[in-house]
Design a protein around this nucleic acid. Structure first.
Lengths: 201, 201
DNA sequence: TCAATAAGTGCAACGACTCAACTTTTGAAC
DNA sequence: GTTCAAAAGTTGAGTCGTTGCACTTATTGA
């Protein structure tokens, strides 16, 4: 999302200009994508709209998909916080389930900006895949947080498995009628499994 | 794999020639990939080696990655059979675990043909991702088989979740030292979870 | 034998992405 | 204040996967 400015404001003129260029590119891209669809907008066109060359564009974003996923460096932080700062008595999978359901509800919320954005991603295979791949990159960090929180060795395979499955749960639930229920059931499976595994120690 | 000929032998001259062309392309591709690596071999080069045009190549294989994954139409059949024909008293997740472990052992076996082939896939991100995507396409069928075998409605979300997670388990275990153990632990989680979920009915 | 069909060809093109060489802007040291 | 190196940006040509189109050739069934 382009609007949320959580970054700590660049300092020098140089970095400010650089950030501005980057923002101009991302804005132009998102606007065009929303207007005409991801696949029907070419790189050159985006570069033109932002008034830069295609080479400059690729110096700011490694691949076309990345144009859509600007910023959000603290997504991982929030994910880990969901585990670490969960209410007393709540299991880890339950905390992750809540986190996932919050996400879902934000995407289905009533701010048309958000819904249009998430629709774009969900209806474009290339973007879905890219988003999922980005999401999965947090699995190592999540596994470590889980292990730490459970007093297990930081490379415990069960923690890694739980982390991976939890991050895959939303995808597992895709296309199954009532998605909210499907997500819940997927996490139920993990919750029951995790408590049984944790008990055996 | 190029060698395993399980197909029912084409009939007409036309179809035989077509199959031969296809085979020539796949063989050339695999040979070059093994010699120099997937990313360092271009489509045009493969087409030349097989003595066909690139257009012809793409009439046989939809994308470059597909050149490596010829045939194996009954992979899904074997997967479903692992569930349906499992020994008495064995749980569904346990059966899937055995199936997965068999795969792993075949890949790590001592036939250098096989190991080289699997190494190629495992060391090439594009091929890993493609293989995983193909593998995941069986999740709907697997979910249905699980539901049927458990006497649940064929669109039960818990079955879909179990199917998806089971197919993701090998990937979840990747890069965790003793892979065999990691796979086992991932399936343990599913096994415990599944038995608890199934009991609550 | 003839027409319909399918396989294969050649070539040009597109879109994403890279590379090398070059200009401009900026930050800072002298 | 001048000078200089690094960083940002440009330009243009090129690679690579992939597609479209118009065309030839071979196979098949009637």
């Amino acid at each position: 999302m382009t609007e949320t400015r959580s970054e700590p404001v660049p300092v020098g003129r140089r970095e400010r200009k650089k950030a501005a260029t980057r923002q101009a590119i991302a804005d132009a891209a998102l606007r065009l994508f929303l207007e005409r669809g991801y696949d029907d907008v070419g790189i050159r066109e985006i570069a033109d709209a932002a008034d830069v060359s295609t080479t400059t564009l690729f110096k700011h974003f490694p691949v076309k998909e990345a144009l859509v996923f600007d910023e959000d460096a603290d997504q991982e932080t929030r994910l880990l916080a969901a585990v670490r700062e969960r209410p007393d008595g709540q299991s880890i999978p339950a905390a992750l389930r809540e986190h996932a359901l919050h996400h879902r509800r934000a995407a289905a919320g009533d701010d048309p900006r958000f819904t249009a954005f998430f629709d774009l991603i969900n209806n474009t295979p290339a973007l879905r895949d890219y988003a999922q791949a980005m999401w999965l990159r947090h699995s190592a960090a999540l596994a470590r947080a889980i292990a730490e929180d459970s007093g297990l060795p930081s490379d415990d395979p069960a923690c890694a498995a739980l982390a991976h499955f939890a991050l895959e749960a939303p995808r597992a639930a895709r296309g199954h009628g009532d998605t909210e229920e499907a997500v819940t059931r997927a996490f139920d499976l993990l919750d029951k499994g995790w408590s049984a595994v944790a008990a055996g120690r």
